[in-house]
Design a protein around this nucleic acid. Structure first.
Lengths: 196, 196
DNA sequence: GGACAGTATTCCTAACTGGAATACTTCACC
DNA sequence: GGTGAAGTATTCCAGTTAGGAATACTGTCC
């Protein structure tokens, strides 16, 4: 049997479109907008299997602090759920105010140009400082990591194609696969060039 | 006439490969490894024209604080240079310890898998919450931004090709151009798909 | 029954961003 | 010959984000 102590700390300052939240808060709200009720831990897992591919997957600590903030702003509802043993877990669900806030953010704010933190490219830039062999090794390792990533993402895409609910997530996943394919082509071209 | 008050605060803790620095510190050290003596402000400009395309260009405030740290660790030398009027500017140059530290980092640490903060993809994921028109508008805007970026980067590449000093930076710039081209293809494919 | 993986959460430090504030110089334009 | 805008140079602060460590309870496997 589950307890049903609903909690929803209200912050009068945030009715409607008051303070703008950090992007991570909107990203988490976005994950919750697919309808499921999740714990912080589950949200981290969900985020590792989706956000990771085109947005940094937030640290655990940040997921919990963002959930607290969303709660303070009345954008999610929380509920204590009895788990196995004497254990209780806090689960979170987006509410109408949260959906409205998320929609408001999507239409009123501009998308920034993507930021890439590409340490392989950074190291290639400095390749004049190291021996050619280690640059080649790094690029080969990256090529292998791309293969893995691609496999992971292909598996996820496989699980959501033909499901109309995940039409847009499927576009995004396909985008990711295209990106990995382009990276692979570039890495291989550079490896060829280096051996001339 | 320029003053030549050399300063090099020594930190005994950091002789050789003691504490590991944040990646941004190595990125800046990397920019300085091309040999020029730069002020914080110039380093920001240099970084905006290079790092920006595959690594986030650090904020001004961070450039200055990293320079302070590099100085503390004895990896760069600084010099007060008389500017126009009664003005003096602090200029920084990498030294032998800095080059050694940078080489050490390149060979001993692993390159992490690139992290992408792609707010366009994030918003596309949530496209079920907004009207189709605004998604299309967002993608078109992104397409235009890609054109601009590509132009900027092509100009930079143009300035460094056929200069053997910048052989590796040229590879990286070409990589960026490939990436932008791949993004353009994907965006256009998605725009086509949306109109079906 | 003890080790280990998984679930769930909190705390702390360091890294990083972005904006504001300051100040001086050069240049354009009226 | 003055005024204002743009460029150079730097510092400070608050808030955001990353990442690791610590804690604790549950289920599983040998």
């Amino acid at each position: 049997m589950n307890s049903t102590v609903a909690s929803m700390r209200q912050d009068p300052d945030s009715t409607g479109s008051g303070t703008r939240l950090p992007t991570t808060a909107y990203a988490l709200l976005g994950l919750l907008s697919f309808g499921r009720e999740l714990s912080g831990y589950e949200l981290k897992q969900f985020s590792d299997s989706t956000l990771r591919f085109y947005w940094s997957s937030p640290a655990m600590s940040q997921i919990y602090s963002e959930l607290g903030r969303l709660l303070d702003h009345g954008l999610v509802d929380s509920r204590e759920v009895d788990g196995p043993g004497s254990r209780t877990t806090t689960k979170y669900r987006i509410n109408d105010a949260g959906l409205a806030e998320l929609r408001g953010w999507l239409v009123t704010s501009e998308a920034e140009f993507p930021v890439l933190k590409h340490s392989v490219a950074l190291r290639l830039l400095l390749a004049h400082l190291v021996d050619p062999g280690s640059v080649e090794a790094m690029l080969k390792t990256y090529d292998e990591q791309l293969t893995e990533r691609r496999r992971d993402l292909a598996a996820i895409l496989d699980g959501i194609t033909d499901d109309e609910t995940f039409r847009f997530p499927a576009y995004v996943a396909q985008w990711g696969l295209d990106y990995y394919a382009a990276e692979k082509r570039t890495v291989r071209r550079i490896l060829r060039d280096l051996n001339e």
